[in-house]
C-alpha cells in the first residue's frame, strides 16, 4: 500500500499549523508593541491627527450611507411584519434596539474594515515592499510607533463618534420610513424608542467601537507589514487584512453582545 500521499498530507498539515502558530505569535508581539508605544503619542500627534481625519472625518459619508439604507430597510421590513400582528406601534422599540445594539456598530465596523483597513493594508504593504519600513528601522525609528500606534489611537478615538453617528442616522431614517411608508405618527415611533431604551442597550453598542477599532487597525497593519512579493503581494496582504478583520468584527460583535447582555 502506498503511504506517500498520506505522509505528504500530514507533513503539509504540520507545516500549515506551524505557520499559523508562528503568525499568531508574531501578531501578538506586534499588537503588544503597538500598545507599549502609546506613551510616544505626543511625538507623533501630527500622524495621529492625519489618521483621525482619514478614519474619522473622511469615513462619515460611507457610514451615513450604510446606516441610512439599513435603518430604512429595517423599518420597512419590521413594520410589515408587525402590521400582521397589529403591533405596528412597537416599530420604534424594535428598530431602536436593533440599530443601537447591533446594526449601527456592526455596519460601521464592516464599512471601516473595508475603508480604513484596506487603506492601512495597501499603504503599509507598499511601504514594506519598497523598503521604507526597513529604512525607518535602519535609521533608528520604531516603525510600529510611527506608523501603527497613531492609527490605533485615531481609530480608538474616532470609532465612538462614528458609532453614535451611525446610530443617529439609522434611527432617524427608520423614523422617516415609519412616518412616510407605514403612516405611523412620529410621536408614537419616538415614544416607543426613548422610554424603553436601557443603559445596557447603549453599553452593548458602544463597547463594540473600541473592540472593532483594535481588531481592524492591528489586523490590517500587521498584514501590511507582512507584505511580500511585489505589487501582487500588496494586493494579497490587503485582501487578507480586510477578510480577516471583517470576519473578526462579526465574531466579536456576537461575543460582545452575549457577554454584556448576560452580565448587565
Amino acid at each position: 500500500m502506498n503511504l506517500a500521499p498520506a505522509t505528504a498530507f500530514r507533513k503539509d498539515i504540520n507545516l500549515r499549523l506551524k505557520d499559523f502558530f508562528l503568525t499568531m505569535q508574531e501578531f501578538f508581539l506586534f499588537s503588544l508593541r503597538a500598545f507599549l508605544t502609546i506613551p510616544k503619542i505626543k511625538r507623533y500627534w501630527r500622524d495621529f491627527l492625519d489618521q483621525a481625519t482619514i478614519c474619522g472625518t473622511d469615513s462619515i459619508p460611507i457610514v451615513l450611507v450604510s446606516a441610512i439604507s439599513i435603518g430604512s430597510l429595517l423599518a420597512i421590513e419590521v413594520g410589515n411584519l408587525l402590521e400582521d400582528f397589529g403591533a405596528k406601534t412597537m416599530l420604534g422599540r424594535s428598530t431602536s434596539i436593533s440599530v443601537i445594539r447591533e446594526l449601527g456598530p456592526l455596519l460601521m465596523g464592516l464599512m471601516l474594515s473595508a475603508r480604513f483597513g484596506a487603506r492601512n493594508g495597501a499603504e503599509l504593504g507598499a511601504m514594506q515592499i519598497s523598503e521604507q519600513i526597513d529604512a525607518l528601522r535602519a535609521f533608528g525609528t520604531d516603525p510600529v510607533a510611527k506608523l501603527v500606534m497613531p492609527r490605533l489611537i485615531a481609530a480608538l478615538v474616532m470609532f465612538l463618534p462614528l458609532t453614535a453617528l451611525s446610530d443617529y442616522a439609522g434611527l432617524h431614517s427608520a423614523a422617516y420610513m415609519a412616518e412616510h411608508y407605514h403612516r405611523l405618527d412620529p410621536g408614537m415611533f419616538w415614544n416607543a424608542v426613548y422610554p424603553r431604551l436601557a443603559p445596557k442597550d447603549f453599553v452593548v453598542g458602544f463597547v463594540k467601537a473600541p473592540v472593532f477599532a483594535i481588531i481592524i487597525t492591528l489586523v490590517s497593519s500587521f498584514n501590511g507589514f507582512s507584505a511580500r512579493g511585489g505589487t501582487a503581494g500588496v494586493g494579497r496582504s490587503t485582501i487578507k487584512g480586510i477578510v480577516v478583520s471583517s470576519g473578526l468584527v462579526l465574531v466579536a460583535n456576537f461575543y460582545v453582545s452575549k457577554i454584556v447582555l448576560e452580565n448587565m
Binding site: 519598497s130 523598503e131 521604507q132 526597513d134 529604512a135 535602519a138 535609521f139 533608528g140
Partner: peptide, 15 residues
C-alpha cells in the same frame, strides 16, 4: 544603526 548610513537598492525614500 545610526553609526551606519544605509542606501537601499530602491532608495526607500518616503514618497
Amino acid at each position: 544603526r545610526r553609526k551606519m548610513g544605509m542606501v537601499f537598492q530602491g532608495n526607500a525614500l518616503f514618497d
